[in-house]
């Protein structure tokens, strides 16, 4: 038989098993922690300490200060979205992350340990269930 040597492609079973297990973990965690709907509030934390919560529907400029009062970064809320416009960190990844507006989305600035997280409006979801 002149079949090409397709049987020569051997997949190591141990390796395949690890890839499958990893994909399963990824899928499970994706469904557990997925993002949902337009957010209502935004909470800002520095190293797990809550700095403040802000309403996403009000356009405002939010400066983020550390506990000594130094300006770390400036974020802007506009049209229900929040973005970081300036930061003193070296890599500026938080600025590159752009605007976020969905509940569960985050902007993380690792050098400053700042986490900007959008939280959904719980009342709205209850209304949705009742209707």
């Amino acid at each position: 038989m002149n079949f090409p040597k397709i049987t020569n492609i051997r997949v190591n079973k141990k390796e395949l098993l690890i890839v499958v297990i990893l994909t399963m973990i990824a899928l499970i965690s994706f469904f557990l922690f997925r993002i949902s709907g337009q957010g209502a509030m935004v909470e800002i934390k520095i190293a797990q300490k809550l700095i403040g919560t802000y309403d996403l529907s009000i356009d405002q400029e939010v400066p983020i200060l550390d506990d000594k009062g130094n300006l770390l970064m400036i974020s802007v809320i506009k049209d229900g979205m929040i973005k970081v416009v300036s930061s003193n960190c070296p890599d500026k990844i938080c600025i590159d992350e752009g605007s976020i507006n969905l509940a569960g989305q985050t902007i993380v600035c690792l050098p400053n340990k700042v986490v900007i997280k959008i939280i959904g409006n719980n009342d709205e979801t209850i209304d949705g269930v009742l209707q």
Binding site: A26, S29, L32, Q48, G104, T106
Partner: peptide, 23 residues
């Protein structure tokens, strides 16, 4: 490290992305 310092909910949110991009 990120989960320990910034909270596990933040880190777990990125877990599926981490695994898929690692693969």
């Amino acid at each position: 490290v990120i989960g320990y310092t910034l909270g596990w909910s933040i880190a777990l949110f990125y877990l599926p992305l981490i695994i898929v991009f690692s693969i």
